[in-house]
């Protein structure tokens, strides 16, 4: 039992924190137009990046450095989980096979989920979504397979190098920008040659956004499925 004293102390702390935060928030009224840099983005996004989705353009292009960091954070998570749950020899130890309904359903849906994830990350510059949601969707496809089959494992030999390669690809795209446009993460496809200017708002536009999002999608998909795999396999005692 949690003692009453501890609870009441916690509630008093919360009241203080809450009052303090509310005072700060009262100075930032809800729903008002306070855009400064945001306005610049909205006005120039189409001309400067070739993407119609302003959020994606900010994520990949204007604030690309953040996204690089974000990819790194996920990579760290997958590496860290792998390091902590590392076993000399490991195997799936699930006990119950999924039922017929689950097995049939997951086999049927698997390709469609993969396709949907791919769709999300390829169309990142046009619709809400992008590499991270797309990659997460792809990882759910593998998660379903893990749930339905007791002995399923992802193809490790393919996924681990793919994860590294996709990450290197992202940095390389940035370094090509450094070589061509003399800025790291420079959008060399759009700003140098204006490829895709004719079909703004269609698939083949948006500069390097689709390329980077494809790399991110692959990376996130493989990483998250790797995390699922690390958590669902256990050590084999011999």
């Amino acid at each position: 039992m949690v003692s009453v004293l501890k609870r009441s102390l916690a509630i008093i702390t919360l009241l203080i924190i809450g009052y303090w935060l509310a005072q700060g928030l009262a100075g930032v009224p809800f729903g008002q137009d306070r855009m400064l840099v945001g306005k610049y983005y909205l006005e120039n996004v189409k001309a400067q990046t070739g993407a119609v989705n302003a959020v994606t353009a900010i994520v990949v292009n204007y604030r690309g450095f953040d996204t690089l960091g974000e990819v790194t954070v996920l990579f760290i998570a997958s590496t860290g989980v792998g390091a902590l749950l590392w076993r000399r020899k490991k195997r799936r130890t699930a006990k119950t096979e999924g039922s017929v309904v689950l097995r049939t359903g997951s086999e049927l849906l698997f390709p469609f989920i993969l396709m949907f994830g791919t769709y999300i990350f390829i169309h990142g510059h046009l619709t809400p979504g992008g590499g991270f949601p797309g990659g997460a969707t792809i990882a759910t496809a593998f998660l379903i397979l893990y749930m339905a089959f007791v002995d399923y494992e992802i193809p490790h030999r393919l996924f681990e190098p793919l994860e590294g390669l996709a990450g290197m690809g992202y940095v390389l795209v940035g370094l090509i920008g450094l070589a061509i446009g003399s800025y790291f993460l420079f959008d060399w496809i759009w700003q140098t040659w204006h490829w895709g200017a004719a079909n703004l708002g269609r698939l083949f536009s948006g500069g390097f956004i689709p390329i980077i999002y494809t790399l991110i999608g692959l990376k996130v998909g493989t990483e998250l499925s790797g995390i699922v795999d690390s958590m669902l396999t256990e050590e084999v005692r011999e």
Binding site: G98, G105, L109
Partner: peptide
């Protein structure tokens, strides 16, 4: 269609898990 396919399957799996 997607919901029609997925929702019953997930509900089934959940309940089976609960029973198990």
């Amino acid at each position: 269609t997607f919901i029609l396919l997925t929702n019953p399957i997930s509900a089934h799996a959940l309940i089976r898990g609960a029973y198990r």
